[in-house]
Amino acid sequence: MANGSRQAAWEFFGAELKRRREEAGMTQSALGTLVFVSGGYIGQFEQAIRKPQLDVAQRIDQVLQTGGIFERMCRKLIDDNRYADYFAAVVELEAQATRICEFAPTLIPGLLQTAEYARAVTVAANPFVTDAYVEDIVTARLERSGILKDATRPEYWVVLHENVLYIPVGGPATMAQQLDQVATLMRERQVLVMLLPYEAGAHAAMLGALKLMDFEDAPPTAYTETSFSGTLLDDPAVVKRAQRAYDLLRGAALSPKVSLALIESAAEDYRRCASTT
């Protein structure tokens, strides 16, 4: 489903939610209380600013006695095989965030990936899929990165483990191009990148990737990911712990200036290697 048609469908979801809520004689706050979100969240659902998770849609159906219509619409709208089920909501939230803070222990984050790097990562994880499937995944990943070019782009902080520089995804030419892109984005001040060096030893988020997202009119969220699954967290106490872990990572990381020099040096090493093969 194209981005425009998906947005139109979410707008229909919101309009239908508003209509059914008003027919039931309920305020946004009253409905929010019954489905365990704030009234402001209900308002954001109705305006298609924020997309409800499936369990919230199910509770709305129960409270408004709508026969499962919101669950069915929600399932249809999040049924995009370019994203894993556990990641679809994260993609929606990235586009609404005012700040994104990310830790990447092994790979360049998706928002910073070049097409060739994304293609190599996708094939490595899915060695038996068709070329068409691979290109769908790559296209979706590049579409996500469009938020960094938007005038209202979020602040984007990234801590990369030094591992990321030395895992040769796609070969030397792909790595050189990828690291050049990261360096360019850093110099253009579209992203602030810091390297966590091997010398930092054990660190606060060494079990997997971490993404924190802040919003204008909604509580912050955290997303953690391992090889086969991810978890979107919105419990305030848990998000606070994740934020503290990220603060510790930044405290152990190299400065942006030193990090940029190391990224550019690694890119040059890959470029020399590519020219001799």
Rank of each mutant, 00 (worst) to 15 (best):
E216K: 14
E46Q: 10
A176F: 10
P154I: 05
Q58M: 12
A120H: 06
R75H: 00
Y117H: 02
K240W: 01
I167D: 11
A151T: 09
L31K: 06
L107Q: 13
A9S: 11
E116G: 08
L260Y: 13
I167P: 00
L31I: 02
D150A: 15
E216S: 12
T184V: 12
G251Y: 04
R153E: 07
F70S: 09
A151H: 11
T184C: 06
F87N: 01
A89E: 12
W157S: 04
T114K: 04
L17K: 02
R82K: 00
Y86M: 00
G25D: 01
A253N: 08
W10N: 01
V129G: 01
A104P: 02
P172S: 07
E155D: 12
E188D: 15
W10M: 05
A97N: 05
D136E: 15
G39V: 06
R20Q: 13
A95K: 14
G40D: 03
E11K: 13
R153H: 14
R272Q: 14
Y156C: 11
L54I: 13
V191L: 07
C74V: 08
Q181G: 10
P52Q: 12
V90L: 15
R241H: 09
Q47H: 10
S229G: 11
R82C: 00
L160N: 06
E46W: 03
V134F: 03
G170F: 08
L107W: 10
P168M: 04
T276Y: 04
P197D: 09
R72W: 02
A120K: 03
G32A: 05
R19K: 15
Q28I: 02
G39H: 08
A205S: 13
V169Y: 05
D79K: 05
D214A: 14
K211L: 14
E199W: 06
L192T: 13
D79L: 03
T27K: 03
I69H: 03
S275Y: 03
R189I: 06
A204R: 05
M1T: 13
L179A: 08
E143H: 14
L196W: 04
P52Y: 12
E22P: 04
A266Q: 14
A97K: 02
S29C: 00
R241A: 10
